[in-house]
């Protein structure tokens, strides 16, 4: 037992020492701007404690109500709102509100209001948001900060909730607002607005307008040039299918199928494109024959896959 008593502390000490190592836990030094940068970097790495540490270290050296203070306050509130686990929405909300009270004209104020609205919108799993209230909050941001990107984002969220209702009245309301928005001077979220419009037109059976909206959405889509996963094969396919099956506009359908094959020669839909081109040729051939013989044209109900049932 004597040996055990002597040996145990030694083992414990060794175990504790073996757990010690270098860490980057030292608070970041440098200017306030450096510390804010480091804090957001830690936020992006999901290093919540380090992010809070850096934000708090930076905020201590700022003038309450100033721009840097507002950025730190926003960062701390956002970290408490978004960290998982350990989120504290109540604390986050109070901090956002404090920001609005102390720095109502700061650059972070519109983003703070948007963050508060998003907290009401993004309810926990299993609950439904109070949509009328959410829309009211978004609309208030749009009215308070006209032209600001946060206001445009709020507008987009409001439109998406109207369309997601799938109720004709609300969808038409959204369409009217989106049509006005795309005619406006905004450069941001224009492609997205056309895209939302195409959903409404599709759900309400306006296929010509849907194609128009999809084409505009494609034209005005903003692309992150560094992202290799961004590709438009899907967009070409979609435009081709609308042209072919909804409008019977084969010239346009062929154009889009061909563009897809030309620009994305190794896309998964190449076989589908070739089948589509053949399908259109076949149906045209068949209709020409009907015209020549003066007989009506029946809808070909089947495809190759509807071959005779195999004996299985």
């Amino acid at each position: 037992m004597k040996f055990f008593r002597a040996f145990l502390p030694l083992l414990l000490a060794a175990a504790i020492l073996s757990g010690c190592g270098s860490s980057d836990s030292a608070a970041s030094g440098g200017t306030v701007a450096d510390r804010i940068d480091a804090a957001w970097q830690n936020y992006r790495l999901n290093e919540w404690s380090l992010a809070l540490r850096d934000f708090e270290s930076a905020i201590a050296d700022t003038e309450p109500g100033g721009e840097d203070w507002a950025m730190c306050q926003y960062g701390i509130a956002t970290t408490w709102a978004q960290r998982r686990p350990g989120e504290d929405p109540k604390k986050a909300r109070e901090m956002y509100q404090e920001l609005l009270a102390k720095a109502p004209r700061s650059a972070m104020a519109p983003w703070t209001e948007l963050a508060l609205a998003r907290m009401i919108h993004l309810v926990p799993v299993g609950q439904d948001p109070d949509y009328p209230e959410v829309r009211k909050l978004y609309k208030a941001i749009e009215d308070k900060y006209p032209g600001h990107l946060a206001a445009k984002e709020a507008f987009m969220y409001r439109m998406s909730t109207l369309i997601a209702s799938l109720e004709d009245g609300l969808m038409n309301e959204a369409a009217a607002e989106l049509e006005k928005f795309v005619q406006g001077e905004s450069q941001e979220f224009v492609g997205s607005s056309y895209s939302l419009l195409s959903v409404v037109y599709n759900m309400t059976g306006q296929q010509e307008k849907r194609l128009w909206a999809e084409e505009n959405a494609f034209d005005k889509t903003e692309v992150d040039p560094a992202d290799p996963s961004v590709e438009f094969a899907w967009a070409y396919w979609n435009l081709a299918c609308i042209s072919e099956f909804e409008l019977g506009d084969f010239a346009r359908a062929r154009k889009y199928y061909n563009e897809l094959m030309e620009k994305y020669p190794s896309d998964i839909r190449i076989h589908g494109c070739k089948s589509a081109l053949k399908r259109m040729d076949d149906i045209e051939e068949r209709i020409r024959e009907d015209i020549r013989l003066g007989r009506p044209t029946a809808r070909p109900e089947t495809e190759k896959a509807d071959a005779d049932k195999p004996e299985a």
């Binding site: 099956f245 909804e246 019977g248 209709i287 020409r288 015209i291 809808r299 070909p300 109900e301 495809e303």
Partner: peptide, 27 residues
């Protein structure tokens, strides 16, 4: 109609176009 089949409306539209292209009497 199946997602990759033509509706009667689309068939009629294609026929109308082909008739015009053929210069045939529009039936």
């Amino acid at each position: 109609v199946g997602p990759y089949e033509y509706s009667d409306k689309v068939i009629a539209r294609i026929r109308e176009r082909l008739e015009k292209e053929a210069g045939a009497e529009v039936a």
